[in-house]
């Protein structure tokens, strides 16, 4: 079993590859020389204590840090072989390929349908009204939400439960047909049942998408991810198969963090 997992993760060319990435917020260095590959159709988890840089690093992957004026990113980050920080890159198009789901579900104050249709409309992806409907329904189905909302697509997205809102946000991310979905603590505001539904969904989504998840829950990283990266004080301490990280981590810092020890 381990053997095939290792082959799977290592033989495929990575869909994203980061090399020697530094991030500064003004004078403060938030990420220090991080190099890491994201394998296609796998779930990669970033873990580490608060302020370790895991979210900052993830936000480099679709240039979300561009929105923070003091942030400066250096190093090389490639998506499908292309340097995403090249001046030629259309950032909006990049974020269409690399979608994002946030900690707090943030549906637009619009109908469920319009929430999901928003992306395809602004990117002009639908050829007709039927096609748009098709995209919306497929996305809701893929996000595991369709059966719960099929009869009320015109109701407001903000009226759904927390877990449903988060799945609506996932449907909205899926609707523009991304290749990678970045999830920043997607379950931290959800109860265990809603969390389990998202985790089950991630497992299914892995077939079509590559997922990167930042999570404070080490148990969640252990449950859902194929590979786990442990960050500490802006550095990537250890990156390995998830089962290795949780049974036999190579680094003492990793061991102390995941087993709840004072380092």
């Amino acid at each position: 079993m381990e053997l095939s997992m290792t082959l799977d993760a290592t033989t495929k060319a990575p869909i994203m590859s980061a090399k020697n990435v530094d991030v500064f917020y003004g004078a403060k260095q938030a990420i220090d020389d991080v190099s890491l590959d994201i394998a296609e159709n796998q779930i990669t988890a970033f873990i580490g204590p608060s302020g370790c840089g895991k979210s900052t690093f993830m936000r480099c992957l679709n240039r979300m840090n561009d929105t923070i004026s003091s942030a400066k990113v250096t190093g090389d980050i490639r998506f499908a072989g292309q340097d995403i920080y090249s001046s030629k890159v259309d950032v909006v198009a990049l974020r269409k390929r690399i979608g994002m789901v946030f900690q707090k579900a943030n549906p637009f104050p619009k109908s469920i349908f319009d929430n999901v249709a928003y992306g395809p409309r602004i990117h002009d992806l639908a050829e007709s009204k039927d096609h748009l409907e098709d995209i919306v329904v497929t996305s809701l189905k893929r996000a595991g939400l369709y059966d719960e909302v099929a009869d009320r697509l015109d109701e407001s997205g903000t009226g759904l439960s927390g877990g449903q809102q988060q799945r609506l946000c996932i449907a909205r991310a899926i609707a523009v047909d991304p290749q990678i979905i970045l999830m920043d603590e997607p379950c931290s505001a959800l109860d265990p049942i809603a969390t389990a539904k998202i985790e089950e969904l991630m497992e299914q989504m892995k077939e079509d998408y590559t997922i990167v998840i930042v999570t404070h829950s080490m148990a969640q990283a252990a449950r859902v991810s194929n590979k786990t990266a442990f960050f500490h004080l802006g550095k990537l301490i250890e990156f390995d198969e998830t089962d290795t990280i949780f049974t036999n981590p190579a680094n003492t810092l990793t061991q102390n963090y995941i087993s709840g020890r004072i380092g």
């Binding site: 080490m218 949780f246 049974t247």
Partner: peptide, 9 residues
């Protein structure tokens, strides 16, 4: 406790 790493072992 859901032990991991050296604790699990």
């Amino acid at each position: 406790r859901q032990p991991v790493a050296v604790d699990l072992r």
